[in-house]
């Protein structure tokens, strides 16, 4: 019998399949189904910094802007309105999820700047979350913002969160750091318990007729997995944090690859959106068969065997690979 248990940020998980933050993990029924299907842990949908800070500012600005203008309508909304914030919904979801399933629950906070909103890490902990995943998502469009500034910003957010919680904290990163390994090390030093590679951005598309951008939501494919695969392989052994591979994990073979490069868990999202939550069970059983067929008895046996450190051809993960490819 193959043992699929894994350890992720000190949490003992029964399987390495961890659904990532998505609309699916907004709903308690889906969370129950994921647990029943064998998910190792569940990352809840993201609570956005904008939701926490900007929403109330927006409401406040709209209300203030329409008050005390005309004598018959000095305001337009009942004064009763309190800004109780819909983040409380999120905390309630954590509580409900914890009550409903035994699977570890990871709260996901999405933002970019240090500030008041990070207190939601502590509130998530108080609500029962087993870990926090910080999705630090920033698009540095300003040419005066240097990579150093962006790096500091990410580290500051992590530090602020770490100062408030005892539960483990993972950082979900974008692939666009000039010095990814350096960044990973800095985050480790700042207290990250796990690194999640990589955030998959929604990229705007264009409407060439309307001369506008348009929002798109395309699901990932296995081909997109190669980028995180490379970086997990490179970082494995170089940082002591847990590693999660996310983006493009669609098949048991993808999961196997993730683990072999050194990930502790593989995050899944698009595949669940496409094929349903039951896919988790299928992945687990196929992974189990695959491992057994190749003689691996546990995750520990195969973890990192094809990492940069261990692979017989480490140059494949380096620039040399590029030279080879174009040389062909």
């Amino acid at each position: 019998m193959v043992a699929l248990t894994t350890t992720y940020m000190g949490l003992k998980l029964r399987s390495p399949i961890v659904p990532s933050a998505s609309p699916l993990t907004r709903d308690l029924e889906s969370i129950r189904a994921m647990a029943a299907a064998g998910a190792g842990a569940i990352t809840l949908h993201s609570l956005f910094e904008e939701q926490i800070e900007h929403e109330v500012q927006l409401l406040g600005a709209v209300l203030d802007g329409s008050e005390n203008i005309y004598s018959e309508s000095l305001d337009f909304f009942p004064k009763l309105t309190e800004f109780r914030r819909d983040e409380r919904d999120y905390l309630k979801l954590i509580e409900a999820a914890k009550a409903a399933v035994d699977t570890p629950i990871i709260a996901s906070l999405n933002g970019y700047s240090a500030g008041g909103w990070t207190r939601y890490a502590r509130l998530s902990q108080e609500a029962g979350a087993d870990a926090v995943e910080l999705n630090i998502y920033y698009i540095p469009t300003n040419p005066r913002v240097s990579s150093a500034i962006v790096e500091d910003m990410v580290v500051d957010v992590l530090r602020e969160v770490k100062a408030q919680v005892q539960i483990p904290v993972a950082v979900k990163l974008s692939p666009y750091f000039s010095a990814m390994a350096y960044m990973a090390k800095r985050l480790e030093e700042a207290g990250a318990d796990g690194l999640v590679l990589f955030n998959r951005f929604y990229q705007p598309d264009l409407d060439i007729k309307a001369l506008e951008t348009k929002r798109t939501l395309t699901l990932s494919t296995s081909a997109e997995m190669l980028l995180p695969l490379r970086w997990v392989a490179i970082l494995y052994g170089q940082v002591q944090t847990s590693l999660a591979l996310t983006t493009g994990v669609h098949t048991a073979e993808d999961v196997m690859k993730a683990l072999m490069t050194g990930a502790d868990v593989a995050n899944v999202c698009s595949v669940l959106l496409r094929e349903g939550i039951g896919k988790i069970t299928e992945l687990i059983s196929e992974l189990s068969i695959m491992m057994s067929a190749r003689g691996y008895n546990s995750i520990a046996d195969l973890k990192g065997v094809l990492s940069h450190e261990h692979t017989p051809h480490p140059e494949a993960f380096e620039r040399a690979n590029y030279v080879k490819l174009i040389g062909q």
Binding site: T81, F83, R88
Partner: peptide, 12 residues
């Protein structure tokens, strides 16, 4: 619109 949005704040 705030008229709808505000309720999500006050009573989700």
């Amino acid at each position: 619109e705030v008229r709808f949005r505000t309720l999500r704040q006050s009573d989700p």
